[in-house]
Design a protein around this nucleic acid. Structure first.
Lengths: 379, 379
DNA sequence: AACAACGGTGAATCTGAGG
DNA sequence: TCCTCAGATTCACCGTTGT
């Protein structure tokens, strides 16, 4: 079926075969302008990688207070407000289209978002002709809890990594990623702390930008998908995390940012960005701590069945396992640790070694099940 | 006797009588039909939760995506990915629309997918009026490696959890989830092993279904978002994981599946899944609503005497108890909650945990008195 | 100097019953 | 529909202050 799009693609490919339409562009600068207009001012095919952190279109209700009474400092900036999904979609398609035009044929795009916007962005970029390579989950080591106990703690954000088209020969530094991950393939879920402490840029004592991303995240993104000397463009530059990391890693950068006060902060920050030292790279190794196995996981996987009975070594107490991972013994109930402490009238108790299950060889501590779980699932 | 429970039941019944929008439906059965047609045969508002694992492999059988009988030719060279997306979207909107119709007003929907389809599904469900509650990342403990080393190891899938509308009062068993996760809030990233070994259903030595989901995943989904006796519908039933887990957890189920050979496997499997005992199905008492005790009841029963003094933990404030159950501190007065908020200059305050009384063992929160009152009066 | 205790905070679509 | 009020609700990390 020879659609207009097909014809266009064929023609573009042929043109490129004759002369690679890759343009040079002035880099290491901030364009203080609206993101679509700024990208429109750049030539075709001049960018190696785009990293975009667009507005999430959060739709927050009233104020939210923590249990102890303090108020949560929410994102209420005007730049995050859109009246309808249709308007947000239009905005999204506009910047994705421009970004695709200025990307080199083998360039790639990264977008980060939350459930509020990422599905719309993902669908839009597929529609625009991008080819998704991976979706990456940024697991936050220290997310904000859900204070009202109404949902699951929102503990991650999603990034989409896409090439300009299906057949593109994009850059992926496989070995670099593998060595960064203790010689195991880098997975699609990354555990990285949120941006806080010294790294968080302050302006008059308050955070300079409500959604500053951690540099570790950009390090991994750039190390994975660009080469030294590549030009990285960030159409929602904010306080310039992308620029700072690009400079450290020897990549060129272009930032697009509308707000003058963010631009000022970014310029100062990037000027201060020191060349990369090895120790910084070491600390961002992807080594994760020994994975924690909650007692509930043994029940979900049926290593222990709800209704089973657990005992202490001397069979003094006998407790029944319930579906939610709590134990019940007479009129007392609680987690494996809590109930163990309660029954012994002790201040605390390690339930993993206190509770045992009946096996062919007599009583065995449930810790052996945790060990089995780890062996089976974390080779 | 008009207990709190009785009153509650009466009121619910009244509400239902006025708004009879909730229908009964025959459950614990497989409907051997196309998913949209099967759902169309069910009445409005009869389902408490939908779990859907829709197909996304666009290369296998283009005839999978025939929303309303519109014929689609098999995949061939003329196939264009824009057409493919359009057809997939149409299919997605069709089943999402039917699912929303048969969901009860406070029902919820779960969809699982990968980057191939989840963005389209997410955008479509937002467009259909669903309200996203969380996106949940299923982190695979043992994913398949990326053999060619061209991308990140695809180590997760994404689930979207959505209510029927923004204002819906959906079910979320917060305490159960917290228990299951060693007394920490359950996060949006779940580490669960893929379905393998004994659990993986074989048919003639080969796996019976290409995308069989682990029971542990469904276990957590159902435990989090349904109550015992709820009706769960799975429009892409496959080998019936949803049915097996529903039966085990005391939920009713309806499976929709077109392929007779999957239906046979599912029926056999579900028949073998034994329902858990009532005692094992219990969760922590904290999950249940406790009978309300007005502060004045403690004074009436002389558990606290008028004229007694209450303090916060740090003894910063000292308030006197009056006969009507109000407190007074200097020129400020009010209920235990109101005065606590007033003194702290906070928007709200839980007086039961804020105020303490002097006892032999130091300060104790008045909540312990409420606990005693409940034990004495609500056996 | 070392460690404990305490306070602040992060992209959040964050209550429910009753009048 | 809006208002009021009872009362349920938080994890990890960082920096500062106190012992």
């Amino acid at each position: 079926m020879a659609t207009v799009e097909n014809l266009e693609r064929t023609k573009t490919a042929k043109t490129r075969a004759r002369k690679p339409a890759i343009a040079e562009v002035e880099a290491d600068r901030i364009i203080e302008q609206d993101c679509v207009a700024a990208m429109a001012s750049l030539p075709d095919a001049c960018i190696d990688m785009v990293f975009a952190d667009p507005p999430y279109n959060l739709q927050l209700g009233g104020d939210l207070f923590r249990p102890e009474g303090s108020m949560v400092d929410a994102v209420d900036d005007d730049w995050d407000k859109f009246d309808t999904f249709a308007i947000y979609d239009k905005f999204t398609r506009a910047w994705l289209k421009e970004a695709r035009r200025i990307l080199k044929p083998n360039g790639t795009l990264w977008v980060i978002g939350s459930y509020h916007n990422i599905f719309r962005v993902g669908a839009a970029l597929q529609d625009e002709g991008y080819w998704i390579l991976n979706d990456i989950v940024w697991r936050k080591a220290n997310p904000m809890p859900n204070f009202r106990g109404t949902r699951f703690t929102n503990a991650h954000e999603t990034m989409i990594w896409a090439s300009k088209s299906e057949k593109a020969k994009y850059t992926f530094n496989y070995k670099t990623m593998k060595s960064l991950n203790d010689e195991l393939q880098m997975r699609s879920d990354w555990l990285i702390p949120i941006c806080a402490g010294q790294e968080r840029i302050k302006d008059g004592g308050k955070k300079a930008h409500p959604t500053q991303k951690p540099e570790a995240l950009l390090y991994r993104v750039m190390l994975a998908s660009t080469k030294p000397g590549d030009v990285v463009l960030d159409p929602f530059f904010g306080t310039g995390t992308t620029g700072a990391v690009a400079r450290r890693l020897g990549r060129k950068w272009i930032g697009v940012e509308r707000e003058p006060r963010y631009c000022d902060v970014a310029r100062k920050r990037i000027a201060e960005a020191l060349p990369l030292d090895e120790s910084a790279l070491q600390t961002m190794r992807a080594n994760e701590a020994q994975p924690k196995v909650p007692f509930g996981a043994l029940i979900e996987t049926e290593m222990l069945k709800p209704g089973a009975f657990l005992m202490d070594t001397k069979r003094r107490w006998k407790a029944e396992v319930r579906i939610d991972g709590t134990l019940v013994c007479g009129d007392k109930e609680g987690s494996i640790h809590k109930l163990g402490a309660l029954l012994q009238d002790a201040p605390s108790c390690n339930g993993w070694t206190f509770w045992h299950f009946e096996s062919g060889d007599g009583l065995q501590p449930i810790d052996t099940l945790r060990e089995q779980y780890r062996l089976a699932h974390f080779p």
